[in-house]
Design a protein around this nucleic acid. Structure first.
Length: 586
RNA sequence: GGAUCGGUAGUUCAGUCGGUUUAGAACGCCGCCCUGUCACGGCGGAGGCCGCGGGUUCGAGUCCCGUCCGAUCCGCCA
């Protein structure tokens, strides 16, 4: 007999009755009834009930063993008779224990493992190995493993090859703050951890590998959010040669539809996913990552107010501003506080105010009920085809601000009124991002996304058009209001690259310096190529239906980028510092 | 860097308008009882610098100021 186990803890069934078995695992719970004791034993595979018979040696043995200790037991499988537990896969049987051996005793726990109570996050991170034993987190991490295995299989089946790229590399010129690693051999010089393997994957395309993917670690020294782990995260990094934007979309839609239907019973957007131009997304939803589980689209009502005698808004339209609005149902019975909170929220987000018009059954309420003429109210109501008890919320401002503010109101209304479609993953592509934008402070033209994207219209567009009107082959994929990734068809032509940088205010030497490796490669025959890099952590978050990214990462850092279990970051020794030619100041 | 919310037993929380003796409950821990439990049940016990520092007050867990810690958001994230 194996020294630890003949079966795992999720395995035994009624048909195993009579067998002598050995099990190993964690002591999950004890139920001591005085004469007889029931113990549940847990491992990765499940839970099995053990029974210590009245007056037996093992009864007093178990009495002394604390929960979460690791034990090996030997005993015989017996039927539970009339006491079958239908909730447990192993519920038909129990193991009558003959001997129990403690492999490792557990101290008193800082929080309960068997109870999924909400232990404080700090303790959960400090004792992450205990938290990972708990059912929910354990399942999430196993889900992550399965999702990644499925991604690898699906990508390989679609003809992609998996590559590894360097972790110690050079600092990338734009984007997030880098993590630097001091060089021992070269005093004063540093490696940087990659923010993404962007240039390497493009170089692999130039090397003729045609289709690349990698579950790639990415390192960015930026502050955390609920859906953004500080320090490091994983991307499904993808790149394709001789591919158009539509080719990238088709492959990713196949992947995402397959992946999400494999791991969830929720309804998933069928390919093709909707494609929404950036400008339209900003106008209709006020964000570039719309949650399509609810409609609530923002409409422009400038013309209605231009034709009205309501001077406050009329003058804004005449001054070049806009009036925009959204219409939401079933708000007539909401309290005054509801409206006030919504207006305060708008002001916090930069609005001068949030006007409202509410169509209760017999009367019109809201801040615009009195000042507006009947004709204007009717026009607004017709615009939205607004039913009884619905309300229209209105912002008058510049075109940029009005929709953005209403976009926030839109999300808040969805939260408060529970408007989101249940059990659904709603995907879309956001396309046609602008190539350049104006810096709010300096007025200078700068890249709005990344400098690697191909401008739509190519060189001709760069030479002839107003840079601020040029769009890029740059796209995002969004699911349920979460941005999973940006991607682009890349600029593989050095002369267009130089020109694009010139427009953004950099001369050729800057390009040669910053992107030396890549620009050199592009001068020796580069295929047109493009790709994308969806966040693996966020994909698992969506599939596990978790609101926080730490729930799908085995060993996450806290919000302040500390690893409470491993005590990182930590001080370096004098010897280490000396070897690295570093001196700590202050 | 900024904003909001929070910090009371190992853990989750309650603690009223600032005033009733010794700051409570549940889970956990320790002890006793209990022969069919499924989060077993019952009885008893230990466990608290009410995050820390200052202030207001006859009196502060409660109010004020500062500070530290945590979560969430803004900035930041090519």
């Amino acid at each position: 007999m194996h020294i630890y186990r003949t079966h795992n803890c999720g395995e035994l069934r009624g048909t195993d009755c009579g067998k002598q078995v050995k099990l190993s695992g964690w002591l999950h719970r004890k139920r001591d009834l005085g004469g007889v004791m029931f113990i549940t034993l847990r491992d990765n595979y499940g839970v099995t009930q053990l029974m210590a018979a009245p007056g037996s040696q093992v009864y007093s043995d178990f009495d002394k063993i604390r929960v979460e200790s690791v034990v090996t037991i030997e005993g015989s499988v017996i039927s539970r008779g009339t006491n079958i537990n239908r909730e447990m896969p192993t519920g038909e049987i129990e193991v009558e224990v003959n001997t129990v051996t403690v492999q490792s005793a557990a101290d008193v726990l800082p929080f309960q493992v068997a109870d999924e109570d909400n232990a404080p996050e700090t303790s959960r991170l400090t004792y992450r190995f205990l938290d990972l034993r708990r059912e929910k987190l354990h399942k999430n991490i196993l889900l992550r493993a399965k999702v990644i295995a499925s991604i690898r299989r699906r990508m390989t089946e679609m003809g992609f090859n998996e590559f590894q790229t360097p972790i110690l590399t050079s600092s990338s010129p734009e984007g997030a703050r880098d993590y630097l690693v001091p060089s021992r051999l070269y005093p004063g010089k540093f490696y940087a951890l990659p923010q993404a393997p962007q240039q390497f994957k493009q170089l692999l395309m130039v090397s003729g590998f045609d289709r690349y993917f990698q579950i790639a670690p990415c390192f960015r020294d930026e502050d955390a959010r609920a859906d953004r782990s500080p320090g490091e995260f994983y991307q499904l990094d993808v790149e394709m040669s001789f591919a158009t934007q539509e080719d990238v979309f088709a492959h990713l839609e196949t992947l995402f539809y397959g992946l999400f239907t494999e791991f969830s019973s929720w309804d998933v957007t069928r390919p093709q996913f909707p494609r929404i131009p950036y400008e339209e997304a900003m106008r209709k939803y006020g964000v570039d990552k719309p949650d399509l589980r609810y409609k609530l689209e923002i409409e422009d009502v400038s013309d209605i107010f231009a034709a009205s005698d309501f001077n406050a808004f009329k003058s804004i339209v005449e001054g070049g501003g806009v009036v925009r609005a959204l219409c939401v149902e079933n708000v007539a019975d909401k309290s005054r506080k509801f409206l006030k909170d919504l207006e305060d929220y708008s002001r916090e987000n930069g609005a001068k105010g949030l006007a409202s018009l509410i169509f209760a059954e017999n009367e019109c309420k809201g801040s615009l009920a009195k000042p507006l003429s009947e004709a204007t109210k009717t026009a607004l109501r017709q615009k939205f085809n607004a039913p009884d008890n619905s309300g229209i919320f209105i912002v008058a401002d510049s075109a940029d601000k009005a929709s953005v503010i209403l976009g926030k109101v839109r999300i808040r209304l969805a939260d408060e009124l529970d408007l989101r479609e249940k059990n659904a993953y709603r995907f879309c592509w956001i396309v046609d991002f602008p190539m350049f934008e104006k810096d709010e402070e300096t007025g200078a033209t700068q890249f709005s996304h990344n400098p690697f994207s191909m401008p739509q219209g190519g060189m001709e567009a760069l030479m002839t058009k107003d840079p601020l009107t040029i769009k890029a082959y740059q796209y995002d994929i969004v699911c349920n209001g979460i941005e999973l990734s940006s991607g682009a068809i890349r600029n593989h032509l050095p002369e267009i690259m130089y020109k694009a940088f010139e427009i953004a205010g950099y001369d050729n030497t800057v390009v040669d310096e910053k992107f030396g490796g890549m620009i050199k490669a592009f001068k020796f025959g580069a295929p047109p190529h493009g790709g994308i890099a969806p966040g693996v952590d966020r994909i698992v978050m969506l599939l596990a239906n978790e609101p926080n990214i730490r729930e799908v990462i085995a060993f996450p850092m806290n919000q302040n980028a500390q690893d409470l279990l491993m005590q990182a970051p930590a001080a370096a020794t004098e010897k280490q510092l000396k070897e690295l030619h570093l001196k700590i100041t202050e």
